[in-house]
Amino acid sequence: MYRSGAVMAWNVFKFCTALRGLGSIMILLVLGVVGVSYYAVVLSIYGPALTSGGLDSLIALVVLIMFHILLVMLLWSYFSVVFTDPGGVPPNYRPIVDEERGETDRLTGSEFNPLTTPDPTNSRIRYCRKCNQIKPPRCHHCSVCGRCVLKMDHHCVWVVNCVGAQNYKYFLLFLFYTILETSLVTLSLLPYFIAFFSDGEVAGSPSTLATTFLAFVLNLAFALSVLGFLIMHISLVAGNTTTIEAYEKKTTPKWRYDLGRKRNFEQVFGTVQKYWFIPTYSDEDLRRMPALQGLEYPSKPDLDSQEF
Rank of each mutant, 00 (worst) to 15 (best):
E99R: 15
F67T: 06
M73L: 15
V89C: 05
I96K: 14
F67G: 06
M66H: 11
E103M: 13
F83S: 02
V82F: 09
G88D: 04
I69G: 06
T104I: 06
I65Y: 12
L70C: 05
P90L: 09
H68V: 14
L64K: 13
L74C: 00
V97F: 10
G88M: 04
D85V: 03
R101E: 10
V97W: 07
L74Q: 12
M73Y: 13
R94Q: 09
Y78T: 05
N92Q: 13
E103P: 00
D98S: 12
R101W: 00
E99I: 07
V89G: 06
M73S: 12
D85N: 13
G88E: 08
M66R: 12
L70E: 06
E100V: 12
Y93D: 05
G87H: 04
E99G: 06
D98W: 03
F67P: 04
F67R: 10
M66C: 15
D85Q: 02
D85Y: 01
L71W: 05
L70H: 05
D98C: 14
E100K: 08
I96Q: 14
L70A: 05
V89H: 02
R94Y: 14
M73I: 03
G87F: 07
V63Y: 15
M66K: 08
V72R: 01
M73H: 13
D98V: 10
D85R: 03
I69D: 00
R94W: 11
S77I: 01
I96C: 05
P86W: 12
Y78E: 01
M66E: 13
Y93T: 14
N92F: 10
Y78K: 00
M66P: 00
L74D: 06
I96A: 11
V72T: 00
L74A: 11
L71D: 01
G88H: 03
V72S: 00
V82W: 05
D98N: 15
E100P: 09
D85C: 02
M66F: 15
F79H: 10
G102N: 08
D98K: 11
I96L: 10
N92I: 02
G102F: 01
T84M: 09
L64F: 11
E103V: 03
S80C: 04
L75C: 03
M73D: 04
D85W: 02
N92W: 08
G102P: 02
V63W: 14
P90A: 01
F83D: 01
L70N: 08
R101M: 15
L75Y: 01
E103A: 08
N92V: 04
V89S: 03
F83N: 04
L64C: 14
G102R: 08
